[in-house]
Design a protein around this nucleic acid. Sequence first.
DNA 1: ACTGTTCCTCTTTTT
DNA 2: GAGGAACAGT
Length: 778
Amino acid sequence: MSRNETIKADSVKTLSSQAMAARSFPYLDELNEEQRKAVEALDGPVLMLAGAGTGKTKALTARVVHLLNMRRANPNQILAVTFTNKAAREMKNRVGNMLGQVAEGMPWMGTFHSISVKILRRNAELVGLKSNFTILDTDDQLRLLKQLIQAENIDDKRWPARLLAGLIDRWKNRAWLPAEVPSSESTAYNNQGTELYEQYQKRLKQLNAVDFGDLLLYCVEIFKKNQDILKKYQSFFRYILVDEYQDTNVAQYLWLRLLAGDHKNICCVGDDDQSIYGWRGAEVGNILRFEKDFPGATVIRLEQNYRSTPHILAAAAGVIATNEGRLGKKLWTSLETGEKVRLIGHWDGEEEARWIGEEIEAIQQGTRGEPPKSLENLAILVRASHQMRMFEDRFLTIGLPYRVIGGPRFYERMEIRDAMAYLRIVTSSEDDLAFERIINTPKRGLGDKAQQKIQLKARQYSTSLVEGAKILLSEKGLGGKGAIELGILLSNIQRWENHLKDQAFNHIELAELILDESGYTGMWQNDKTPDAPGRLENLKELVKALENFENIQGFLEHVSLVMDNDTDEGEEKVSIMTLHAAKGLEFPVVFLPGWEDGLFPSQRSMDESGLKGLEEERRLAYVGITRAETLCTISFAGNRRIFGQWQSSLPSRFIDEMPADHVEVLTPPGLYGGGYGAVGMNSSLEEEAMAADGYDSPGWKRLQNNSKRSMLGQPKDSKNLIIDATASSIFEVGERVFHQKFGYGNIQEIEGDKLQIEFDKAGNKKVVSKFIILAEDV
DNA sequence: ACTGTTCCTCTTTTT
DNA sequence: GAGGAACAGT
């Protein structure tokens, strides 16, 4: 019925399109009312506020299919932008499935960056680039910046290149060219930030290279300065769809506004509660402002959650409710009540990993009174990647298969970058950064001195390093072994270039030949370190990856843009990933470890961005909880080793924000003396008991009192209760005390139950008194 | 030039 | 605890 209304409203449309619309579209019947509205509101600006698990992707793909079925646009006239390659792939697959064909016919479905590259290659000359420009990765970028910094005689100890890289990235995210950086920023980076930014951009253009930020920045610049080109793209992209709109930064926002400026057929999907990329320049303001930016916009809220049980939703809602300035959504579900969110405190991080490992095995075997579950259904979501290690260690020792998602990427490995540098120098001998990388890898006796001579020569003739090296040799500016080796390298490069041109070999053979003749493969074959075989394996994989591409250039472009490496071998595994990487995913069973103040919410985030930072952390917590379908387990540890130093911490404040009715507090198993890990490597029963009750955070206490089950079977006068009764009174300032992990120290200050202690070895720390005993009692 | 040593900082989060 | 930079020794 609503479809008929739509047709009436669209009375301008041709008879044929009406006839098309009158056909039945089975995918529409699978949508709920709101989703359907979002799909059928084809024209004009649409904002789809889609809460977690509300079928956003379903609606989005249905919308694409509907646009096609209604003949509003050809597949190549729809611009569909996502942030990650994974999301783009997913959308392509789903659209393809719905249409019953491969969605290769949708060339403009991709990430902001990949689409920008396409546009930029076609218009490169407008910003002073050649269309075969290379895209630098972070490593190249840093090396380049370092060179500039050293040329300016800046102490790169005090002013690290990373800092400058971050600064430039921020400016680019705001779509500021060097000349557009406001003067308020002029004190940045020792007052030389803007100057170095300008130099950096110049140098990039000399190298015919861009960095990630440039892809967006230059597109925006082209659109702004060339009305004709903008018009062309505006009319070409008849419909625009944007996923995860809350994560757009200023540059992306301008990019979209410019492209949608004419017809305004733009549909943005997002959730302000899931905005977690503020640190990368994302502006939640973009989504909050949508209706102002696009007057008359249709706003649709998707609030029915199909993913999680009511307990999980309630816990998540409780946390996110603390944030201010939300657009506000109320998620609801018709699913039946499942288990409450589980909460458990541990003595330290190792104990936490051990416990989670045991839990996972139990769930896998189905010993929790439920059918066995595949490990594919389980995920561990951490705040910071260094937390992953603890779990990897533990899972390796108990032989639990796991997969780290978004870890160190394939393309970032040293051997891959080296190999790619060889390929780069062959496709473009002007790629100085690639040449620098390979000139002495493997060792050719071309050290700092030789390289400096080449640099000097290249600068003197203002040419590339390869050319500079040739000149140096012809002028006999280099002697001995170095000269011979450099000669060999240069003639090798020349020969490889010719092979590439002649097409004497296909690109796979050529790549193998290059790695072979350069001695690079040999270098690793002769390497006796334990990771050498793995590196050779990676090189093989690199060559194999070439099979999917027509030529080396195409491959290089792919690698610089597509960063995820889904090497999903068949075996079932637990997934370990950061909360950021988990956005958009869902798992029946989710573990959220490390909920401690300082770690989560991250201290750094709060220090740098204050309340804004804290609220973003809270959204991260919300994202984490809402990944879970049926079982969500949150945990924290009282002690954790950070930078090799033990640190004690309090439970995350987010724990206090969860409504107690929806949380069940578990007691660490060690308390009962039974079960597993009772006598851990370095944690005793007593310590575990303290861990269970060692916090004074009101929320933790409240939750603990609320949980009757956790108290079952616990002796009334168990040791931890005795300690509890005496805890806050027995200490005095100046007393000599002992802590299990930090060792001896003196009390500096007493603040309720927390003691400020100057430890002899571990430094000054704030510790809950229950972890402390008098030195004389040891 | 290269290798091995110590000392230093450092960790959010990523296209 | 690890990876990088500076230094010293071959």
